[in-house]
């Protein structure tokens, strides 16, 4: 194992464990302040969006809104599937099938 990678994994492990244990120590009696609770509530939505949207709109690092952008087309299919089925496996499988088909067609 490379030292650099191990350091990153160890850092991630400590950061993650901190988030899991800190509040058990901190909020034993009182509870979370309301403003913080409201702010934290939208962190997952914000971070998921900030990862998905650039991956679909800038797959090669430059903005690509054309129909030849396979990531954008397959991403739309995945979004509709996720909305209709609420099923992780269906979304991934259908999205990947569309992606593979588009890659095969545009070869």
């Amino acid at each position: 194992m490379r030292g650099e990678i191990f350091l990153i994994i160890a850092g991630m492990a400590i950061a993650t464990y901190f988030t899991r244990f800190a509040c058990l120590v901190l909020f034993r009696a009182g509870g979370v302040p309301g403003w913080l609770e409201r702010w934290l509530k939208h962190v997952p939505t914000a971070i998921l969006t900030s990862l998905i949207v650039p991956a679909l709109l800038l797959p090669r690092g430059a903005l690509d809104l054309s129909l030849s952008n396979n990531y954008l087309l397959a991403g739309c299919v995945a979004a509709v599937t996720a909305y209709k089925t609420r099923n992780v496996i269906a979304t991934m499988v259908l999205g990947l099938i569309v992606m593979l088909a588009l890659c095969w067609i545009s070869r």
Binding site: T45, R86, V88, M99
Partner: peptide
């Protein structure tokens, strides 16, 4: 194009979170 598995997976986690106005706005701003 198997790297698309990640955005597809994250999409399946994101969509059910979009349930009210604050979450729509958080999504659009993000």
């Amino acid at each position: 194009g198997l790297d698309f598995a990640l955005p597809a997976l994250l999409m399946a986690l994101l969509i059910p979170r979009l349930a009210d106005r604050p979450s729509y706005f958080a999504c659009v701003v993000s």
